[in-house]
């Protein structure tokens, strides 16, 4: 048996190398670009159901600034976007694009008060609906929360927050907060040298939270399952996304570190966005907060406090077993997280 395994080694190594180095087609759900501004694009997914069977309230997906949003449409047969389009949602995705050196001054102020209102205005024009729903994931959840608080009368009916890093008060429980502590990390020195926060550094930071899982176990999982095409395909799709890094605009990164990780200004009601204080009690939209119980990037303690700060009468906190990305893109997402989000949204999109 050992001899057999040894003889299979060259073939296995070759298959492993192919899996690690080849990219797979991702983001295959048909869509069209309906709006652009600088690097940002608003996509509308082509509906598959006739208009009378579709929900009248459109849904806007807002992902993080430093990763590609196609994690929401990873591969055919395992795509949240594809699932929601089939359920009759008029679906839009805001892709922030990759900031260049000319975007190093972009801040949360610009994203929430210049980009988002214009993208939403376009979405309303196309859909013909004055109301809309919004789903924000990770940093996208910060953006949607800020927008919802500052533009509470803009027609937002439903807000869905996935693994939302909003509360930065527990410095011991948040590893990133330790790393960017002002005693150890000079954010201005880094940004003076790089302009934007390089995607590679962000990727290192995310992976270093669980170094053995990301640098060893991830590849061992592939090695052990090389004879299982389904696992290999899923691994390749995820690897394609993980290795496709995007820098974070310098201005936004500085705010993230100084205003949020160090001073917790959002939850304390002290965050000023272009002269306006972000008051979470202004949020009145129906709220669904999804927490990943094993999330190392956004520990659950960061997403819980929002529930008591907002004025929404209809609010729900939903906990899912899994990690930051796994709850939406893992093998169990289509059985737990997606149906729950869809079920919650369906009754509120009529």
């Amino acid at each position: 048996m050992v001899a057999e395994q040894f003889l299979e080694l060259p073939e296995k190594l070759s298959a492993f190398n192919r899996a690690v180095t080849t990219k797979v087609p991702i983001a295959q759900t048909p869509k069209e670009v309906v709006w652009t501004l600088n690097k940002a694009k608003l996509y509308r997914y082509i509906p598959v159901l006739p208009e009378e069977k579709r929900h009248p309230v459109p849904l806007l997906l807002v992902f993080a600034l430093m990763n590609r949003p196609y994690i929401l449409d990873l591969r055919p047969g395992h795509s949240f976007v594809e699932f929601m389009v089939k359920q009759g949602y008029d679906l839009y995705l805001l892709d922030w694009g990759s900031p260049g050196p000319e975007d190093k001054r972009l801040k949360f102020d610009d994203y929430t008060l210049d980009y988002m209102p214009r993208a939403i205005r376009k979405m309303k024009t196309i859909s013909g609906s004055k109301e809309f729903s919004m789903l924000g994931w990770c940093i996208g959840a910060i953006l949607t929360t800020v927008y919802s608080a500052l533009r509470a009368d803009d027609g937002l009916r439903n807000l869905i927050l996935l693994t939302a890093p909003l509360d930065f008060s527990d410095k011991q429980g948040i590893t990133f907060a330790r790393w960017v502590d002002e005693r150890y990390f000079d954010v201005d020195k880094v940004l003076d040298a790089t302009g934007n926060m390089p995607g590679e550094m962000i990727d290192y930071g995310a992976k270093a939270l669980k170094p053995v899982d990301n640098y060893v176990l991830n590849y061992l999982k592939l090695w052990d399952n090389l004879d299982n095409p389904q696992v290999v395909e899923a691994w390749k799709a995820m690897n394609t996304w993980v290795t496709d890094n995007v820098p974070l605009a310098g201005g936004a990164f500085r705010q993230l570190v100084v205003d949020l990780y160090r001073n917790d200004r959002l939850m304390r009601g002290e965050w000023i966005i272009r002269g306006e204080r972000v008051d979470l009690s202004q949020i009145r939209a129906n709220l669904l907060t999804v927490i990943a119980e094993a999330d190392h990037i956004t520990p659950p303690c960061q997403s819980e406090a929002i529930m008591s700060k907002i004025s929404s009468k209809d609010k729900e906190l939903f906990r899912v077993r899994g990690g930051h990305i796994g709850i939406m893109a893992g093998s169990g997402a289509d059985k737990i997280t997606w149906p729950h989000i869809e079920g919650w949204l369906q009754t509120r999109s009529k």
């Binding site: 590893t175 790393w179 502590d181 150890y184 880094v190």
Partner: peptide
């Protein structure tokens, strides 16, 4: 894996990486 998660979530690790980055810059 568990040992490393504890190791990176420490002030010593934050200080070490911060010093390395600062020296490089």
């Amino acid at each position: 894996a568990k040992t490393m998660v504890d190791a990176v979530n420490s002030d010593a690790y934050a200080k070490a990486t911060g010093t390395m980055l600062d020296t490089y810059l």
